[in-house]
């Protein structure tokens, strides 16, 4: 198999790699905020449940979580395994990343001085207005570098979908490597991920720059 066919074949899986990447961000970024806010809830029960949820998701391998979400329903209830693996893959990724984002958000929110809340309160901002207008914009600026880190990791983590044989780029590459007994597909995959992350770095850098107007 020529290098070109190899690249073309693997490119076919890029769409699915992108699907995991973008859908995971789409769901995990807001879900992480919900988890963070519940984690900071004044109710001991809710915050303890969230803390447990976060430790489980951060304390066990993503690969295991992928297997659990994809095949768990079959072993537990005898449900048929989803034909379109994208659904369980995205569910597992989104929940896992939400746990990481939640802790980043929490750190960001807790780093904002209490005085900012008090100033807004005295000026008559509602709780919601205070959060949306005063707190959140400052939190986003502060956590952006940590979020970039996670996003870069996510690009590489999409390859984990091979464990449930979802036909994304790395899974295809692995299959070619097996059938052709060649290491080349892995090199190609490495270059793909590197280029993908170059774009991520560029985009996140632009966003950071746009928030550079204040300190």
């Amino acid at each position: 198999m020529s290098l070109l066919t190899m690249i073309l074949k693997m490119s076919e899986g890029l769409g699915k790699t992108c699907a995991i990447f973008f859908l995971t961000l789409l769901f995990s970024l807001p879900l992480g905020m919900v988890v963070a806010l519940l984690r900071m809830s004044r109710s001991k029960i809710i915050s303890s449940i969230m803390r447990f949820f976060i430790t489980v998701l951060r304390g066990t391998p993503l690969m295991l979580q992928l297997l659990a979400v994809t095949y768990g329903p079959y072993y537990l209830f005898g449900a048929t395994v989803a034909r379109n693996k994208l659904i369980p893959v995205v569910i597992a990724f989104a929940i896992n990343y939400a746990a990481y984002f939640a802790e980043i958000y929490r750190g960001g929110i807790e780093s904002i001085p209490v005085g900012q809340y008090e100033a807004a309160e005295v000026l008559g901002y509602s709780k919601f207005q205070t959060f949306m207008r005063i707190i959140l914009p400052q939190v986003i600026k502060r956590i952006l570098p940590s979020v970039t880190n996670e996003v870069v990791t996510l690009v590489k983590d999409t390859s984990m979908a091979f464990t449930v044989s979802y036909q994304e780029m790395f899974t295809i590459g692995k299959q070619i490597a097996n059938s052709q007994t060649s290491f080349m597909p892995f090199v190609v995959a490495g270059v793909f991920y590197y280029l993908f992350n170059a774009i991520v770095d560029y985009v996140m850098g632009r966003i950071e720059k746009r928030l550079d107007y204040y300190r």
Binding site: P113, G115, E118, A119, V122, L123, G124, Y125, K141, Y214
Partner: peptide, 27 residues
């Protein structure tokens, strides 16, 4: 009652992401 008083803090507590004008006029 809150609209009847204003409070100036020791550490200013301006909103750093707002311009001077927006700090003053948003509320």
């Amino acid at each position: 009652f809150r609209t009847r008083f204003g409070l100036v803090f020791q550490n200013f507590q301006l909103f750093p992401h707002y311009s001077v004008l927006k700090n003053i006029s948003e509320a």
